[in-house]
Design a protein around this nucleic acid. Structure first.
Lengths: 217, 217
DNA sequence: CCGCAGGTCAACCTTTTGATTGATCCGCCC
DNA sequence: GGGCGGATCAATCAAAAGGTTGACCTGCGG
């Protein structure tokens, strides 16, 4: 059989070039195509399939530019028929990013500052259908599985979104046609679930966990 | 004369490889050395100088890993005798980051998602002793100087940053070794300049205007 | 049919935040 | 050397936010 064929997804030309350079150093790897965003990634995959060309692994940057992020891109790719495994390569090792990526169907999570050899191993693992986690990441997940239930209800997320725009309780109440008392009740629930005790912390944490989009993005 | 000699400073092997690949595509560029952190960068510069080897430009990543950041690295390099110009290459287009970098002596500020040709031009400008700003960045600075009445002082931006992490006034006071009264005074000024009347709005607006980084990024 | 979870609301109380006024100190520039 | 802006602090008051308790309604699943 030929080399292991990779699709690069990253909105930074610089990083794409770097990955390409690094990966092609290994003789058994080759870059099938590159894509700068979700749409391009899906397009490339279907295009390559139409040509009968194989893609063994998708290497995906989590944090892409405006209007685009790796999580939704991963989800989109995984929805395709016989989708290749997606290996996340990122700068960020926050618990939230990782969970979101795994939930979206990523089969590995590596950090960009990893040495080339580690990245190579991860790509091989992913291609073989196995899970590949950076040591740091693995440790983080371990500590997470024993944590309490923090799932917010849709309504609570909605509150949080309005909260992040800077609205007061009263303004939120008016916007949602509910009383201020109800807003407060929701907020108490939200704070409890997130483990914070004021709205700014809630916003910061929710943004970090990507429960809501960060203000200004 | 020979090619334009560049020192790469970035803690990600992937990005270094990418920059190297991209830069050496241009025949008049060559990579003199690479460094993963501030110490290594200074060491490389003195080593190369001892060998009589020229370095025309330092290409610096702003956001480096733990215990290290591009701003202090830039300052350290600029403190050397006849230091080469430092061109910042970063993911973040936040006002605070840019101002800090410029203050540290950077002579250019480019975003990583810029097309290769733009990066090339920036490197050339920097080497020629000129200032090179990404269009986005330039626009940001322009809009800032044209409305000086709303310009926040460095201290106020600092407050805003802490605010965005969810700290209470008291916590901010402790963090900055000032009284809560002073924190309140600063906040009143900030609110006035931004035209809002509560902290969450201030954060949302500041993030939107890229005065601070959005929480969670 | 009953329980349960999510959403709604109210009363009450404490803490935090925001607004106002006024003051001191320091570095800088003309 | 006088003014000016930035940073510091204090006292006080009003408004908003946060915490607690308890209650009602609804839809959904056992």
């Amino acid at each position: 059989m030929g080399t292991l064929r990779i699709l690069l997804v990253d909105d930074h030309p610089v990083v794409r070039a770097g990955l390409r350079a690094m990966l092609t150093e290994f003789e058994d790897f080759s870059v099938a195509a590159e894509a700068a965003d979700e749409d391009a990634a899906v397009r490339e995959l279907t295009r390559l399939r139409a040509l009968g060309e194989r893609v063994d692994v998708v290497l995906m940057d989590l944090q892409m530019g405006a209007g685009m992020d790796g999580v939704t891109a991963t989800a989109a790719i995984r929805k395709l028929d016989s989708a290749p495994p997606v290996l996340i390569l990122t700068t960020y090792d926050t618990e939230a990013d990782i969970l979101a990526a795994v939930e979206a169907g990523a089969s590995g999570y590596m950090l960009k500052d990893a040495p080339p050899e580690q990245i190579r191993q991860a790509v091989l693992s992913a291609a073989a259908g196995q899970t590949a986690l950076a040591p740091k990441v693995a440790a983080l997940l371990m500590s997470r599985i024993s944590s309490p239930e923090t799932a917010l209800t849709p309504r609570e997320v909605q509150l949080l979104e309005l909260l992040a725009t800077g609205l007061t309780n009263r303004a939120i109440a008016r916007q949602l046609f509910i009383s201020e008392a109800t807003v407060k009740t929701h907020l108490v629930h939200i704070f409890g679930k997130l483990g914070v005790d004021n709205r700014t912390s809630a916003i910061a944490l929710a943004a970090q966990r990507r429960i809501i989009r960060a203000p200004g993005t």
